[in-house]
Design a protein around this nucleic acid. Sequence first.
DNA 1: AGTCTATTCGCAACTTAGTTGCAAATAAAA
DNA 2: TTTTATTTGCAACTAAGTTGCGAATAGACT
Lengths: 141, 141
Amino acid sequence: MSPAQEQAARTLLETASLRRTRPRLLVLQSLLQASYPVTQEQIAEQLGDKSPNKVTIYRTLEALCTAGVVHKAFLQDRTWHFEPAHNCSEHQCHPHFTCIACGQTTCLMDMQVPAVKSTHNGYTIHRQRMQLEGLCPNCSC
Amino acid sequence: MSPAQEQAARTLLETASLRRTRPRLLVLQSLLQASYPVTQEQIAEQLGDKSPNKVTIYRTLEALCTAGVVHKAFLQDRTWHFEPAHNCSEHQCHPHFTCIACGQTTCLMDMQVPAVKSTHNGYTIHRQRMQLEGLCPNCSC
DNA sequence: AGTCTATTCGCAACTTAGTTGCAAATAAAA
DNA sequence: TTTTATTTGCAACTAAGTTGCGAATAGACT
């Protein structure tokens, strides 16, 4: 956890109007250094001995989601995956790619997805998300 | 359950190379007459007294998914939602719309979603899904 | 129709992600 | 430093989905 990341974590807590506590800083730093959406269990594992209680992690994630600083990326295999709300606009989250060979899910931050129209048959569309499936670079060979 | 739907259910079982059993016909008919992705619990409720055992429903759904006749639409609130694989092409599933007011999810069968390119930075993309969020016609007023 | 066998079904018991209640700890305001 | 609302951790709980296994049955073969 670099000083820069610690600073980023502090800023995010301030944005979310949440008290600066050790567990929250740890959870945020763990989220920030992950390159794909992670579960509570992965966060706990990554933090090792320093990890807060499981319940605290869940509650922290929930609070960060409510504040809009973190996203529930999706629920896969009965488990929520979380990620910082980086690279998500108000109307669109970045696309997620899941490899059908190795199962790994990645965020395709740099992929442009065309926006759908904002209304359709009486439905008012606020946000869109795209999920992609296929082979990742490793498994394509 | 109309005779037409029963016939459709039989055809789907044949496609899936699965034995024609009472529980499977019931589950399929229930799926076919739903207008949105449904859970095991909703299927059981809809079938009432005639409903097969919970485990049988799960196993039937799993088998139908493996055969490609049914899709797991998504996992929401720790619960899988299933739907017939109607209106899904090989490369793209129809979009799902979830209302942020009433929580109801609907399939937008008639909505055109542009296909993304089939490769991106080494990723080979086989299938895409779109999830939409906003207000449904009822809640828009 | 009757027999046989692999498949499917239903029950009960289990697993585990996520939640709740509550007393102890603590951030930060006074 | 004191105070107080907020946050934390523990233990116990909830419920979706799974597993093992004996009983039932679809469909093939007389």
